[in-house]
């Protein structure tokens, strides 16, 4: 007896096609806005001379953390500059910044909602599990019909891939606020908004920032992978090295990614610590 194969793939494709044609106005608008955002930020960062941007980042590191981080940042960026990977690095940074911003703008309200509403929490959590365990490459495929080959698709896939930790940590942070502090806020007659902005959010900020840190790290890894659908940056350097079988070039670009990752990680972690007190 033959059991009919469930045409799951066909259904999904049908659904995606329907979305693409029905909402092309929306996707095109998103595409245009995102593209503009990418270009403006990219051009801005490119317009700055290398040394100026390095100095800026060094000062930021020094203010937020320590002179040691500043020295490390300058050394790492100088190496990238020296290897001739400055422009790809800037392109990657642009994609990470924009994808992270979009992810956070979506994730924090959703996280707050999930923390405050048990029903939303139960609805959102399985979706997050799905988003995180689905192999990252798969997001690249529907991105193309929505937004075409290029950076906007990369952003789309990256946002989806990197958003879950920010949602989870935001919800977790708010749920961890001690009950008695919530009682204190209530006892003095706080509205929901007052309670959220004066008590819950400030107290969950360290946890929320840990989520943001995770989101940035995931965004960076995805932006590199997104080179496969035509995203510019360090990822495309790696991709080219693979195609030409040039391990040296590949590692150079890979090291640049590592430097950028460490820099972003240390910087956001130190922001988290300074905010915590």
């Amino acid at each position: 007896m033959e059991i009919t194969r469930i045409p799951l793939g066909a259904w999904i494709e049908g659904g995606l096609n329907w979305l693409t044609s029905e909402y092309s106005v929306v996707t095109r608008a998103i595409s245009r806005v995102t593209q503009t955002g990418i270009e403006v930020l990219n051009d801005g960062l490119m317009w700055l001379p290398e040394w100026a941007l390095m100095a800026l980042i060094a000062v930021l590191c020094w203010r937020a953390s320590s002179y040691r981080l500043a020295i490390g940042a300058v050394a790492g960026l100088a190496l990238i500059w020296n290897l001739g990977l400055w422009n790809p690095m800037i392109e990657t940074l642009t994609l990470v910044v924009i994808a992270t911003l979009v992810a956070i703008i979506i994730a924090i309200p959703v996280g707050i909602g999930a923390a405050l509403s048990e029903r939303l929490y139960r609805g959102v959590m399985p979706i997050l599990d799905f988003m995180q365990t689905m192999p990252a490459f798969v997001y690249l495929i529907p991105a193309i019909p929505f937004f075409g080959i290029g950076s906007v698709s990369a952003i789309f896939a990256t946002v989806i891939f990197s958003m879950p930790p920010a949602i989870r940590f935001t919800a977790l942070g708010i749920r961890q606020v001690p009950v008695e502090l919530i009682e204190a806020a209530d006892a003095y007659g706080s509205t929901r908004g007052q309670k959220l902005f004066k008590v819950q959010l400030p107290l969950s900020l360290p946890t929320v920032m840990a989520g943001v840190n995770q989101t940035i790290m995931l965004a960076l890894s995805m932006v590199v992978i997104a080179a496969m659908i035509g995203a510019d940056g360090l990822g495309s350097e790696v991709w080219r090295a693979i195609q030409r079988l040039r391990p040296g070039d590949g590692f150079e670009a890979g090291i640049a990614v590592v430097i950028l990752a460490m820099l972003l990680d240390r910087l956001t972690q130190s922001l988290r610590r300074t905010r915590a007190k």
Binding site: P178, E180, A187
Partner: peptide
């Protein structure tokens, strides 16, 4: 109502 709590419940 004002309220004072056992474990103080001050906002850290």
């Amino acid at each position: 109502f004002s309220m004072v709590f056992q474990n103080f419940a001050l906002f850290p």
